[in-house]
Design a protein around this nucleic acid. Structure first.
Lengths: 215, 215, 215, 215
DNA sequence: TATGAATGAGGATTCATTCAT
DNA sequence: TATGAATGAATCCTCATTCAT
């Protein structure tokens, strides 16, 4: 996103310091989100907690939104990487149910690390202003999921791979967040994962094929 | 403390006027949400569009949030009423799949009326400040769904009725909203309803029972 | 102050009802002052506690200030009446110190009934807008005190009766209020009265004359 | 939490600028009080006259009240400093009456500089919200006065040093303010000082001792 | 007379952002 | 580059007062 290119020899340590500052700012923001709310994450407050001045904050981020966007992008990247990793070619032999479980569990891990952050990212993701970025991310996710589904085409219930990917992804994402935020009794993380895996597998995959390794 | 003395006969026309004002304010708010965003729904702006003064607005609503809360409450009530209606006793004979479809379709209708409103309500529902109200609503929904599921207990895949109700409701709600906001190609309303019904029925109900009327 | 004169036969019961309303409003105001503060004594709030509508309140008082003014006037009247009573001709024979003590004690009684009210009246009395009314009251008080002093001219230390009356009155008034508001340890009401009597007597009256009945 | 890193050398000119701004705001406030009233000393107006923006005002003062509090504190400090100065050890040899006169005159000087300011401070001092601060100041004054009285214990009429200090201070303070605000005829500043010195000396000190230097 | 919904000017406060040092 | 004082548009909200019913 922020690509500066000054071809001086000090480039590296300088870049390293810049990255440290950026990270401090992002972490400070998350800290505020966790303890309080997005409303209290003012630029002044973020800078204060990050241990820098507002001026410095604005050296590294175009404006306040850019900070939240950076967080969003970072989580997007992490989520996608995880999914690509699990659904990659080399896992071709694994049974569909196992694959789904790995993805759901991976997602749960990401969300669990900072539910407050994901609460805010969900809110931001719903903002009209962010529609495009979020949509783009969704497309990338759908793409990965679709890739996986196409590999297992023979076991799918439905032909509409695109729609199925969309529905499955949204269901998992939203239910997981709601569960982490509301913590409904009797639905601990393990039970949640089981339910979501059931949901997805039954929705997507023919009964007999779920637990069979793909041929 | 506040001793109202005479419930005068003029009370009714006065109340009617008050209700009309309240409605005007709510509708004005929705109108702004639809055309623009929650950020632009300032108290001044709402009052202006509603054709009243800010003072009047504050005469009827504690503060700005109270307006959005009122909208939320109104939608909560509508959604619950619809569900209770569909899942009521007198529909006992209907096949489960049919029942699910009616609920999903009913929900879709509500959402379709004003996706922008539901976008905002979803955002508001994620705010920490509203956690309690939203949670309370979720519990009421879960309750209705659970009631339905218990009636059909024999056809259920799982015993964990509570968890199943939660997962099913969150999945439908979130996917429907995402779909209305992103309008993914190839997923028109009809297709969406079909996918969601498939999702829920396969998740909840034993294969053979879905299309049979309950005995 | 508010002199209405409608020469109808229903005049009396009507006036009685009006006076009851006025009293209810004044008492409601005092109640708010006592429990909270002048800031919270809004017209709406006063009306509510008085058990009438704002409209009714405005039927009886020109504007909000008129309410506080009425309270001020009422206390002015009470204080003056008390002083005139004590310092009246028929007490001519009493020793000066005794007279002073009666006045101080009378004042203390008034203040003690509602320190919060007198706190507010003191504040209002300092407002530029009220300068004239307060000044007029002070003149009336000074007048009464001066009358007393002139009677006892022979025992006075100073010839500047006017100045002495002013200083004595302000000292007693302010110290009494401060004492009631701050309640300094070791200065209960009885001690306060003694100190103030000492203060005034020593200030005004020749040593040998204080405890002698006037000849 | 707030980790200030480098107390850079530019800190001083920056601090000087900040102090200048604060002073400008305080002086602007006084100017409004003098010409008009506290009600007209709105934050916008103060900022305007101080030649800064509202934002800057809020950069230096928590809220509107903080400005008046700062003025109060400043006057408190000045008054205390003056009293401590006059009543300090090195003036031990001075006659009591002379000491009292110096204090009264010093106070008169402070009040005369800006009666309007002291009118407002008196009002603010009566506010419930400020009770604690005012009380604390009173205690400090009482303390200084008591220190003085204890030095002259042999000449005092009363043993209740605490009560005497309280009564004397409140009397002087209030009478002086009332006199400056009402300007009663025949009581110019010189006459006022004389009356107050008489009041205090006769109240506190044994007749024969007032004009003798302390042994 | 009583009622209370409606008014709207006006005030306090916030906070993203800039820029001189 | 870093700093943090300064900016000021924008927002929420209050409350004395009016007036149609």
């Amino acid at each position: 996103m922020s690509s500066r290119r000054t071809k001086t020899p000090e480039n590296k340590p300088r870049q390293a310091r810049a990255q440290a500052t950026i990270d401090a700012i992002l972490e400070a923001t998350i800290r505020i989100l966790e303890r309080e709310s997005l409303d209290l994450a003012t630029t002044t407050r973020i800078a204060e907690i990050a241990g820098v001045s507002v001026g410095t904050l604005y050296h590294h981020f175009e404006d306040r939104d850019a900070i939240v966007n950076a967080l969003q992008e970072r989580e997007f990247t992490r989520a996608l990487a995880m999914m690509q990793d699990v659904l990659s070619q080399e896992n071709l032999g694994t049974a569909p149910r196992e694959m789904v479980e790995r993805v759901v569990r991976g997602l749960a891990k990401l969300y669990e690390t900072s539910p407050a952050l994901h609460r805010v990212l969900a809110i931001e993701g719903l903002r009209v202003a962010n529609a495009e970025r979020v949509h783009a991310f969704d497309l990338r996710v759908i793409d990965v999921v679709r890739g996986f589904l196409l590999q297992s085409r023979e076991h799918l219930r439905s032909d509409d791979v695109e729609a199925a990917a969309f529905v499955a992804y949204q269901s998992v994402r939203a239910t997981m967040l709601a569960s982490l935020l509301e913590r409904p009794p009797g639905l601990d993380l393990e039970a949640l994962v089981k339910q979501l895996v059931d949901l997805v597998v039954r929705y997507l995959i023919r009964d007999d094929a779920a637990t069979q390794p793909k041929s």
